[in-house]
């Protein structure tokens, strides 16, 4: 019945509809578990405030993790790669033209040798 929705990839297949059905079932189970939890808690007391070992909560803007701090480890580990790659993007128009024509010359050579 679901054959019509199955993507044939030559060697394999992929059926999004079945996937969605499974996903929905998993979601319903998760929802059921969530509904079993405690529904009532005192909302206007200390219970809703973050507990930071008794310290005062810092300003909202200070606790937000900014983008520049994300993947610091990744770029640090790949430093050897990035320190070579990023400077290539010089922003100088002459370099852009040079890369374009350089690739063209390279492909000329490859095609010429192959032929």
């Amino acid at each position: 019945m679901l054959d019509a929705y199955t993507l044939q990839t030559g060697t394999g297949f992929w059926d999004p509809v079945v996937w969605i059905v499974v996903f929905l079932v998993a979601f319903l189970i998760a929802l059921a578990i969530w509904l079993l939890g405690e529904k009532e808690y005192p909302r206007d007391t200390q219970a809703v405030k973050p507990f930071l070992s008794g310290n005062v909560e810092p300003e909202k803007a200070d606790v937000h993790m900014r983008a520049g701090n994300l993947y610091w480890g990744f770029t640090e580990a790949m430093k050897g790669y990035y320190s070579r790659l990023v400077p290539l993007h010089t922003g100088v128009l002459n370099d852009y033209v040079l890369w374009f024509l350089g690739v063209m010359a390279l492909v000329f050579v490859i095609v010429g040798v192959a032929a």
């Binding site: 990023v86 993007h89 010089t90 922003g91 100088v92 128009l93 002459n94």
Partner: peptide, 10 residues
Amino acid sequence: NAEKVRKLRG
């Protein structure tokens, strides 16, 4: 000068 007109890079 093309070398100075490069606010976009990286």
